[in-house]
Design a binder for these strands. Sequence first.
DNA 1: CACCCTATCTAAACGCCGTCAAGATGATCT
DNA 2: AGATCATCTTGACGGCGTTTAGATAGGGTG
Lengths: 195, 195
Amino acid sequence: MDAARRILENEGPSALSLRAVAREAGVSPAAPYHHFKDKGELLDAVAHVGWEALGETMTAAKERATDVSTLMTEIGVAYVLFAQQHPALYRVMYDCSRDKDSLPEGMENNEDSAYCLVRESFRRMAAPAISDHDVELATIAAWCAAHGLAEMSSFRQFDPLKEGLGGEEGFLRAVLSHLGMFPAARAKANGDGDG
Amino acid sequence: MDAARRILENEGPSALSLRAVAREAGVSPAAPYHHFKDKGELLDAVAHVGWEALGETMTAAKERATDVSTLMTEIGVAYVLFAQQHPALYRVMYDCSRDKDSLPEGMENNEDSAYCLVRESFRRMAAPAISDHDVELATIAAWCAAHGLAEMSSFRQFDPLKEGLGGEEGFLRAVLSHLGMFPAARAKANGDGDG
DNA sequence: CACCCTATCTAAACGCCGTCAAGATGATCT
DNA sequence: AGATCATCTTGACGGCGTTTAGATAGGGTG
């Protein structure tokens, strides 16, 4: 698995063949089959550690945030930065769930999935009367925004805009807060006057 | 190319090998090399017709929209519905640009790319004083939202929410307008009072 | 100690893949 | 008729995922 991560970081997802992993690990092509049922299961394992790392990154961002009005944006920025720093890993994290036609691990309804981290953050900061329905909608919308941005933020077309917004992080913050990650932020972005 | 599209629709992107295309077309495995430099070029061609079709879909949605305050959301809904109806094609459209480390065709700065369609729609509906910078930011944000939603809307986790929102299209509309595809819509979603 | 069991690995093969080189076929133009 | 060009085939190469059969080494038990 270390070998797999090394290949992923150095040569990208398309170079991640079972045989390449075996070579990198200094072992025969059939050896991985004594540890994983097939290639997909190895990718699952790699994706698993990816989701763990992303979860830690987001939790750290959540705990770092001081102002509740920017909390969600900060988590979003952390999410996208993670995807930028580990693009191949991020790709695997979504791809191997797509192949299984199932949810990505971080979006499951486990108590401590990354998705639930976001949802509970939404719930805690919103008015107490907010419905589960609205919390869910806000969470999904935020996740879509972050995922879309994560997949596209490397497009060179955005470079001029990034310069005008104080670099990568400023750009991410601008897009995410433009999309109004949660009602308070949206009201703020919208004119600041009332709500 | 018809054969390629057929395979894509019926068996998904992972089944789209050059040899399979040749088989489907009733031709030897080497025949495609007389029409395309390599597999990537064939995928490029497939992606090209995909972007054309998506562009037409979005243009139609734009012309169908009557209320300017929902125009952008309607274009977004059309975008996501296209991705849902042609998931394999949609995947190819982004993947083959990723492999070349270039922009997807629909996002280029061509006069009539899908991206520019959206950007000009934004520009025309916004206050005349709006800066290019703000138009660009709004376009990017909207595109991120639509792309993220397109990639995730098939997740089964969202099924309960979809039922509560009147089916697939209601769900898409809710998420996209929650994300405030443009200032007016955002003000509206936010409380309707002023702007 | 010998014995067996388990974990781990290797070697060799299968069929599929992308790709290329060489040559065939048939239409078009001169 | 002969040259030219587009189109296709055959056959091969190495890489891939995967399977089968067998090798090697360590630990526990008699």
